[in-house]
Design a protein around this nucleic acid. Sequence first.
DNA 1: ACATAAAGTAAATAAAACTTGACATTTTAA
DNA 2: TTAAAATGTCAAGTTTTATTTACTTTATGT
Lengths: 65, 65
Amino acid sequence: MKNRIKVLRAEQNMTQADLANHVEVSRQTINAIEKGKFDPSLPLAFKIAKLFERTIEEIFIDESL
Amino acid sequence: MKNRIKVLRAEQNMTQADLANHVEVSRQTINAIEKGKFDPSLPLAFKIAKLFERTIEEIFIDESL
DNA sequence: ACATAAAGTAAATAAAACTTGACATTTTAA
DNA sequence: TTAAAATGTCAAGTTTTATTTACTTTATGT
């Protein structure tokens, strides 16, 4: 699963730590998600989407056929 | 987290087992998700959304403030 | 009423999200 | 150019929770 978190962060001049604080996870969790090391839980995906005022599918790109 | 899976299933005359087969999880997993006992993983949420040709937010309703 | 399909639930397991801490690399900007 | 900030990474551990297996109850149709 890929995602556009990095660009959305950039648009808001937001650091990984900033985002982590806002959605209440560790900085490393954001980093790992951003790098595609694992997927966020659905609730966390919603939190992130809400913060960026986007839909989940606008942020996360499902790569399964 | 609530969801509209039950109605979407009904619209398609689909049983929990049918849906489970399509998205490759156990029937009980669908039942538990449907009853709100837990949330699906993000990949599973995408699978379900794709099957019903809906967006994730059209199916899953985030209740966090 | 009876057989069967469908749905519900509990307990156990498996899996994966998430944390912590530490350190290395890259970017920023002063 | 150098210090600080931001990012990347990795191991190891915790903990949450998704998912399964097995069993019970309810609905459906004949």
